[in-house]
Structure formats: C-alpha cells, structure tokens
Amino acid sequence: MTLALLSRYWRELGLAFLAVIICGMVLLDARHASQRDKARAELAAEQARHAVTRQSVETLTAALDVKNRESEARAKAYEESKAANAKAIAELDQRYKATASRVEALRAMAKQFPANPACRAPAALLAQLEGL
C-alpha cells in the first residue's frame, strides 16, 4: 500500500520535499542575512574608528614633522653658532697668549729692578702697562 501511494503521488511528494528544502534554505538565508547585516554594521563602526585613528596619526605626524624641521633649524643654528664661537675663542686665545707674553715680559723687567717702595717705576715698565 505504501508503495502504491508512493508510485501514485511521487510527483506531489517530490514537490513537497522540494518545498520543505526551499523553506529551510529561506530560513537559513534569513539567519545568515541577519548575521551579514550585523557584520556589516560592525565593519562600518570599525572603519569609522579606524578613520579617527588614521586622522589622529596624520595630525600627529604633521606636528612631528613641524617639530623635526624646527629641531633641524635649531641644530643648524647651533652648529653655525658653534663655528662662530670657535672663531671667537681662537681670537680670544690669541689675545690671551699675547697678553700673557706681555705679562711675562713685565715680570721679567720687574725682577731686574730692586724692590724700593720710594722708587718710581721706570718709564719702560709704565709703557708696557699701557693697554692691559
């Protein structure tokens, strides 16, 4: 009897089975569509957060570039100042050596004369003292 019913209604049963499969697929698709929509919303939110992060990084990078240029300008000015100061130090060193040699000459001249508080300093010694 079951075989007879199957052979008589096989098309209807096949269509019913196909309808059940299609309904199952529709339900699965609806569930997946809900998950897909949720994933898309999460993706959009994540992309918005990343956009803010990228903007922050760009802002900080620009500020860092400005600070680097300022630092490089200060370093260049420092090097130029250092070179100028080295020249000034060399000139001052020359003047110190010249003055030191004059002081030594004055000391040598002073040792040649006896120590006498009442005595006036010689004109040569006074001439050497001028400009020190």
Rank of each mutant, 00 (worst) to 15 (best):
Q128P: 01
A127Y: 01
L106G: 01
H50E: 07
T61G: 07
C23P: 01
N85E: 11
K111W: 06
T59S: 04
V66W: 13
T99L: 11
E72C: 05
G131Q: 01
T2P: 03
A41W: 08
S56L: 06
V20P: 01
S71K: 09
L106K: 03
C23H: 05
L28R: 08
G14T: 02
P114G: 00
K76F: 07
A30S: 11
K38L: 12
S71T: 04
L5W: 09
A4T: 09
A121P: 12
G131V: 00
L6W: 06
H32G: 05
A19F: 07
S56A: 12
T99C: 05
L126K: 02
L3W: 06
A88Q: 15
G14N: 02
Q112Y: 09
N85H: 14
E46A: 14
E46D: 11
L126C: 01
A83E: 03
R40M: 13
D37I: 10
N116H: 06
E72R: 09
A123K: 14
Y78H: 13
A44E: 10
L43H: 11
A110T: 10
F17R: 10
K76C: 00
R69N: 15
A98W: 08
R31S: 08
T2W: 04
L15P: 02
E72N: 14
A127V: 06
A44D: 13
E58T: 14
K38F: 07
A105I: 03
P117V: 00
L13C: 00
E12Y: 05
A73Q: 14
Q94R: 15
A83P: 00
P117R: 12
P122K: 00
A86Y: 09
S56V: 00
V66Y: 15
E79L: 12
C23S: 06
A115F: 13
A86T: 03
L18Q: 09
A73T: 14
S7L: 12
V20S: 11
G14M: 06
A124G: 11
K97R: 13
A115Q: 15
K76Y: 03
R54I: 04
A41M: 08
L28V: 07
A75Y: 06
N68S: 15
Q128R: 09
R40N: 10
A118S: 15
T53A: 14
G24A: 03
K111P: 00
A39W: 12
M109P: 01
Y78M: 15
A48L: 08
A86W: 10
R11P: 00
W10Y: 11
L3I: 05
Q35L: 14
I21D: 00
Y9V: 01
E79N: 05
N116K: 04
A44V: 10
E58G: 11
D29I: 03
V20C: 05
A41P: 05
N68G: 08
S81D: 07
N68H: 10
I89V: 14
I22K: 10
A73G: 05
A123C: 04
M109S: 00
K67A: 15
L43K: 10
L27E: 02
A16L: 10
L64G: 12
K97V: 05
Y96G: 04
L18W: 13
V26F: 10
E42H: 08
V57D: 02
R8H: 09
V66C: 07
P114H: 00
K67G: 04
A39I: 14
L106C: 01
S7M: 08
A62P: 05
N116V: 02
A98E: 11
R74S: 04
Q35W: 10
I89C: 10
S34N: 14
D29W: 13
A115M: 12
A77F: 03
